[in-house]
Simulated scan of single mutants.
Amino acid sequence: MAYWLFKTEPDTFSIDTLQAQNVSCWEGVRNYQARNMMRDEIKIGDEVLVYHSSCKQIGVAGIAKVVKEAYPDYFQFNEASAYFDPKSDFSNPRWIMVDIEFVRKLDRIISLSQMKAMPELSEMPLVKRGNRLSIMSVSKAEWFAILEKE
């Protein structure tokens, strides 16, 4: 089992949305590095920190788990979708998604500023300047260090 952090903007999709849906596809990833992680590394049973970004309370808001491995992101073929990609081909889709299931909402958001202050997370890409990836791996030690702050 591996650990991951998935970033989302809560105005679009939040831990509360996931809780209400219970299971949801994680669509709209349009970064090749993040896509490759979803395609090649993320497996059923992996655990996910759901991270709220671009909002008032930035930080880890909850936990999910992967319940379906990579499959074509069908939004890339929908011209009405914000995730439409005219260069993607049905026979060789450019973009993929995974399905995640709600596990639990944290008692409180573990903020980015808290995480930046933790020496155990000093090598985590999230706390380093300039990191824009929407999906990133999290070591087991980082996972438990973050959840100890709850």
Rank of each mutant, 00 (worst) to 15 (best):
G45P: 01
K43W: 06
P119Q: 11
D73L: 01
K43R: 12
W143C: 11
I146F: 06
G62A: 06
S139P: 09
T17S: 15
M37P: 00
N31W: 11
S88M: 04
V48I: 15
V67N: 02
S53T: 14
F13D: 03
A34R: 09
K87T: 15
S53W: 02
R39H: 03
A117D: 11
Q33T: 14
Q57L: 14
E47Y: 05
A80V: 02
L133N: 10
Y3F: 13
G45C: 03
M37C: 06
K116V: 14
D46G: 01
H52E: 09
V60S: 05
A61G: 12
E150D: 14
S122T: 09
Y74G: 00
A70Y: 06
C55I: 06
A82M: 13
L133I: 05
R132D: 08
S53V: 13
S139E: 11
E41R: 11
W143I: 13
M124P: 11
L106W: 05
S113D: 15
Q33H: 14
I146L: 11
R94C: 07
K149L: 13
E9H: 02
A61L: 05
M124T: 03
T8A: 13
D107W: 02
V103Y: 07
T8W: 00
V48Y: 02
K65C: 12
K87I: 02
L147Y: 02
Y32M: 06
R132L: 14
V98I: 15
G130D: 10
S91C: 00
A61D: 09
A80R: 10
L112Y: 12
E69M: 12
L133M: 14
Y83C: 05
A2K: 15
S14H: 09
M136H: 05
P93R: 00
M37E: 07
T8I: 01
F77Y: 15
E41S: 15
D11P: 00
A34F: 08
P86Q: 07
Y51V: 04
V66K: 02
F77E: 04
D73K: 00
L49H: 03
A141L: 10
R35P: 00
P72Q: 07
F77P: 15
F6R: 03
W26L: 01
E69I: 07
E79V: 10
W4I: 08
T12L: 05
I96S: 07
N22S: 15
W4T: 13
R94N: 06
R129G: 06
I15P: 00
S139L: 10
R104F: 11
Q33F: 09
A70V: 01
I58W: 11
P125M: 11
V138P: 10
R129N: 13
F84V: 01
I58V: 12
A2G: 14
K87Q: 13
G59R: 03
N22I: 09
G62P: 14
Q33D: 10
K149S: 03
E27C: 05
Y32H: 15
V98S: 01
N36V: 00
F75N: 14
W95G: 08
Q114L: 14
L112N: 02
F13M: 09
